[in-house]
Design a protein around this nucleic acid. Structure first.
Lengths: 302, 302
DNA sequence: TCAATACATCGATAAATATCAATGTAAATG
DNA sequence: CATTTACATTGATATTTATCGATGTATTGA
């Protein structure tokens, strides 16, 4: 065989293996459904291409040469590789192939991140050839990348609505008001009234919080921050009061660095959404994964 | 693609990869040395067989689909497997393939066994696909198996000549006369005369030993044994004298259990042969290995 | 020696494949 | 809108492949 294996060679190899399995040219006629003379010609053709004899055959019986045996081994491996390839290539017709770009905001509750992981695991069980690309960005960034198509699905809190994006509610995150250890209210924290907290300094978010506006009484805002960590720093200083997610504040509370002012009184809930571009931009991969994401969330509430 | 990868598909896959590597149909004309229309038809044919689109192409440029990328990966692996197979199949033309059956007798000197190992190592450097099957048997058995073809090469001492076998001298083994620790001659051993040893009891081999007959004076044989260990047992009893190979007796001498009577006086040499059937029965493998065996022995004496 | 067995060889024929040149189609550009 | 670019489609033609049936060859067994 000069150069690469051609299609003809593959055919001849299959004929050879059929002869080996049948134990001779004559019995192989049935398997191959062609005449003895055709098989004989094809075998000879293969031997000519290879440059050596594969089997002794004739009145005295059929027997592989040493080289024929070794060649048969190699040939079976090749046929198997080819068969695997065919199966994979054929399967790809029904299979989802490509990448899925997901964007998350930071400090999502561990339990919710676990939901995303569950959805990914469930998706992987479909045996699809999809690679996940996950990035963490602020909400504004996420929206930008959604619009450009760099990110296909985002999960987080979004304070406004971009008209060309689709928002689906996934879960609720509770924000509670806290004071730091050095704050004058620290010793009495737990059951404070609106009057007791009203004139103290509060740290607030620099972006609108519609859910908070509706549920929080008038307070004296003297500091602004554009993310959760910044708010936490201000509160931990012992100078400002402010709202933080319960799951984020929990370790600090445990260490006695923060205390809730009055959880029953000073709290608001924010919804986390799954955001995508509108349906006409959905790939098959997206559709399938969104299904799995929904199932995971329904399963928890069901 | 229905069933196995059929004829034409390998060719079509190669066309697809050439188009991918060239970055489009038009540039691939050069690589493939056919016209654009031919390539277009072949690509479409492959896509039809697969049932999905492999690439987007036209005025707006060339780009692989997600499935096209995955398929290209798989296809490259297949082409490589095919290439490996071709190389192996082609190499087998020049290669020795099969098994080599070698028979040895037991207790060959370590240094001589090392020679066989050297010859095998040297042979393996030919990068041939030959499996070695080595068995250990008495000389008569070895000859039998040689005649039947079960063994192709035997190495050992053979006291007679079978007409249809070919004997080639490999090395000489020296036999020396010893007495055991409890024997009356033990205290004076080392320089005994023929008269001093003549009337004592000797153990001898139950098969002819032409080399010994010529070199050993008349002695009083009162025991026979058909192998070396049996002779050794008789000598170690302290009752008989007898001849043993030097290399075999050496550890016993070291432990003071045996002493040579007079090495300069009471010894004979036996040749070890390599035995095969006559040349017309020699396979290529045998011929090549015998070459290597000769080289190893010449190297030592040269 | 003859007949049976298991291929090997050969010529004829039909079918499949590969390619080209001409023309059509869709998208991008000025 | 007209032109250019990058393919897609089509029909004609030459080449290659696959197969059969007839016949030849070598080996084995009675």
């Amino acid at each position: 065989m000069l150069g690469n294996l051609s299609d003809l060679d593959l055919r001849l190899i299959r004929v050879f293996l059929a002869v080996v399995d049948a134990g001779g040219v004559t019995p192989a006629q049935v398997t191959l459904n062609v005449g003895q003379s055709t098989i004989s010609t094809q075998l000879s053709s293969l031997e000519t291409r290879l440059g050596y004899r594969l089997c002794d055959r004739g009145r005295s019986g059929f027997a592989l040469t040493a080289k024929g045996e070794r060649f048969a081994e190699l040939a079976r491996s090749l046929i198997e590789a080819v068969s695997d390839f065919s199966a994979q290539a054929r399967n790809m017709d029904k299979q989802l192939v490509g990448t899925l770009n997901i964007g998350l905001i930071g400090h999502t509750p561990i339990s919710q991140n676990a939901r995303i992981s569950q959805a990914i695991a469930r998706f992987k069980k479909r045996n699809e050839a999809v690679r996940f690309l996950i990035s963490v960005r602020p909400p504004g960034d996420l929206e930008e990348h959604l619009l450009s198509g760099d990110i296909e699905i985002a999960v987080g809190y979004f304070w406004h609505r971009v008209p060309t994006l689709s928002y689906t509610s996934l879960f609720i995150e509770r924000q509670v008001a806290y004071c730091g250890k050095g704050h004058p209210l620290y010793e009495h924290a737990g059951n404070l009234s609106a009057e007791e907290v009203a004139h103290h300094d509060w740290a607030w978010r620099s972006y609108p919080l519609p859910e908070a506006q509706q549920n929080v009484p008038d307070i004296n805002i003297t500091a602004e921050a554009d993310n959760m960590e910044a708010v936490a720093v201000l509160i931990l200083s012992g100078y400002h009061l402010g709202y933080l997610p319960e799951h984020f504040a929990a370790p600090y509370v445990q260490q006695g660095l923060l205390r809730a002012l009055n959880p029953g009184r000073f709290h608001y809930d924010v919804p986390f959404h799954m955001v995508t571009r509108h349906k006409r931009h959905h790939t098959d991969i997206m559709t399938a994964f969104l299904e799995d994401l929904q199932v995971v969330h329904l399963g928890e509430t069901g």
